[in-house]
Design a protein around this nucleic acid. Structure first.
Lengths: 210, 210
DNA sequence: GTCTATAATTGGATAGAC
DNA sequence: GTCTATCCAATTATAGAC
């Protein structure tokens, strides 16, 4: 695996019936959204009857919650910045930016992002689950790297928390919004360029002056 | 009106029945989302019968499209950067950042943003309408200001389009995502601080070195 | 636990009177 | 154009057999 792969862990193969149903629900919800996904479709996708689905999950809402919790957990699971070389800041930031962007733009993450934003009025608690499992964990990783890198003298940062957020914002940039809106899927070159531009601007702002 | 007000034009008071229905549909869709808003509720909100609603709009989808188009049009209508003083770059950027952030975080814009993201699979065309009317128009305004400001020698920018996008990303920052996810509403002080932080970092990256 | 069949409700859309 | 009343399809949820 290349260093800039998104490194999203594959979902565990479903073992019991509950897992099968959960996996089917996940595919259906992520593909259609909460409202457009029917329990009929989920049962069909799982190769089970609706009654069986209801034997494991009391309602559509509960099933949805279980899917979101499960998928959120996977979100940032494979995202780390701990092993990166804090001496070579530019290269390490480029790796982080590429990983982050590939994770953010991966179809599953885009899909769950869309659905949570769309249903936040009906399911406010799920957004919190997603936030803690995803964006927050990533920000912590980035902040940790920035602190280590600053110790080598390569970065000049006063507020690490703020800087980590700004780095993430620069990396997300326009391309994340555009993908969320379904306006084209960037190819690998576009994506690497976006990551590079974000790192370049971040270093112009926070790179230590010689 | 203070210089940093979001300056969102109020919707025109509804005149005919069609306008009344459109306005009612807007309130209902923005409050509940597409799926959860029923034609019954919209008719009730408009003080009309469902049959009347269908006399003006052939289907729920068409009505939704009309609402999104109308609301998108209002989005960036009141956002301008044309009158700002390109000599005082920092102050002008602060004004832009504050206007932009207040616009982005206003309840109506957040609501329509959520609903478009949530329904992008079902209504891909609406996202394009929204993008052109909103984010794109704002980026153009920002890019125009950066070009004028660069002529005074206060900014050192190679790619204006990119820089405008990065400025917008820095301003949006974490706070926009958090608000979209319904995780708290920032007060005025938080908001001004966020705008200030974005401008400061942008100028560290692109301010002309003395 | 799992299925088939069905109840109960909701919600999009329309017919027909005025 | 507007209303009341209604149709019909879809969907959530469950009863009852095995």
């Amino acid at each position: 695996m290349s260093a800039i792969d998104a490194n999203i862990p594959a979902a565990a193969a479903p073992t019991g019936k509950a897992e099968t149903i959960l996996a089917a629900a996940q595919r259906t919800f992520l593909a259609s959204g909460f409202g457009a996904a029917s329990m009929d479709a989920i049962a069909r996708e799982a190769g089970a009857s609706k009654a069986t689905v209801y034997a494991y999950f009391a309602s559509k809402e509960e099933l949805f919650g279980a899917v979101v919790a499960r998928e959120s957990e996977r979100y940032a699971e494979g995202f780390s910045a701990g092993e990166l070389d804090s001496a070579d800041v530019e290269a390490s930031l480029a790796i982080i930016a590429n990983r982050f962007l590939r994770l953010l733009l991966s179809p599953d993450v885009i899909a769950i992002n869309r659905i949570i934003v769309g249903e936040v009025t009906r399911f406010p608690a799920l957004a919190e689950v997603f936030w803690q499992a995803g964006p927050e964990r990533i920000r912590v990783q980035v902040e940790g790297f920035l602190r280590r890198a600053a110790e080598t003298g390569a970065l000049d940062i006063a507020d690490f928390r703020l800087a980590a957020g700004q780095f993430a914002s620069l990396v997300r940039g326009e391309i994340h919004q555009r993908t969320l809106f379904g306006l084209g899927t960037p190819d690998a070159a576009t994506l690497s360029a976006a990551a590079g531009n974000a790192v370049a601007t971040f270093l112009k702002a926070f790179g230590a002056k010689l």
